[in-house]
Design a protein around this nucleic acid. Structure first.
Lengths: 146, 146
DNA sequence: CTAGTTCTCTGTATGATGCAGGTAACTCGT
DNA sequence: ACGAGTTACCTGCATCATACAGAGAACTAG
């Protein structure tokens, strides 16, 4: 029994609960993008236009879920949808300028919430946390494929 | 703009997504307690019988949500419910032996999943992650009250 | 050309959650 | 000890994110 592993498991469970609550109850995040839309737009900003499938794979979501999210983002004007010339089955989802603005605003709001939460952490501690989380995500991402 | 803060924010968002996916898709966790039931029982195991309200406060959930979860756990035989003698409005939720067994089983299953995920981490790294997460939860818990 | 596969979308179901509103029980000031 | 306010819980909604199953259109390989 590795005590640290047990602790990680427990703390992750609690983090999921608290982070969800934080998201819901923080007024500053009211008018901002939902988590999955946020992550999807972030991805589009990083790597350019993508198909539904590619977004789904990155976020580990079912493609049907992404379809709906993209529909919502499209009607909000955050993304445009085209068809791939080479393969007419594929949607090509691209971020619009309005999407960029929404992404930036969301990023700003979220960052300010976290800046406040981590106000009494020193810089090295924040770095350690960020790096540990990044590595954990990496392990999770790998582990999900099984 | 503190880069580490932005990273933490982003990594937490991604962690919520991946951890949820991990939970859903891992066969080993199929027959185990849901996250909130798990955390509630854990709390009962730690501090003994509690009122609905107290559980809700600890988990930062609405009392109505906890009511339902407790009803479900009661019909599963994991908790018993009584009334407080001194205050007949209060429920007194106590873990049963079956609840203890379910908690232990869930803990075991979850720990084994994490042990696998963190297989290529060394012990110091796991400890760092666990501690950073614990502190983050602490900050979150404080921050939610505002 | 056919059979199978891939990509997206739609229909449906589930589960966790919050909020609003109700009822019973308690508390406090007069 | 009565009435006003408060607290604790429960119930009835509504919502949201999600998955899975199935359908149709478009591709691919033999």
């Amino acid at each position: 029994m590795d005590e640290a592993v047990r602790d990680v498991e427990l703390q992750v469970a609690m983090l999921l609960r608290l982070a969800d609550r934080n998201r819901r109850s923080n007024v500053r995040l009211d008018r901002t993008l939902e988590r999955s839309a946020y992550l999807a737009l972030l991805r589009l900003a990083e790597v350019g236009p993508l198909a539904i499938n590619e977004i789904a794979e990155h976020l580990r979501l079912d493609a049907s879920t992404v379809t709906r999210q993209v529909l919502a983002m499209e009607s909000a004007g955050y993304v445009s949808r085209g068809r791939d010339d080479a393969d007419a089955r594929r949607s090509v989802i691209a971020m619009t300028p309005a999407g960029r603005a929404a992404l930036d605003g969301t990023r700003e709001a979220r960052a300010s919430v976290y800046a406040e939460l981590l106000a009494d952490w020193d810089d090295a501690e924040r770095r350690v946390l960020a790096d540990a989380l990044a590595r954990l995500n990496d392990s999770l991402d790998r582990g999900i494929g099984r």
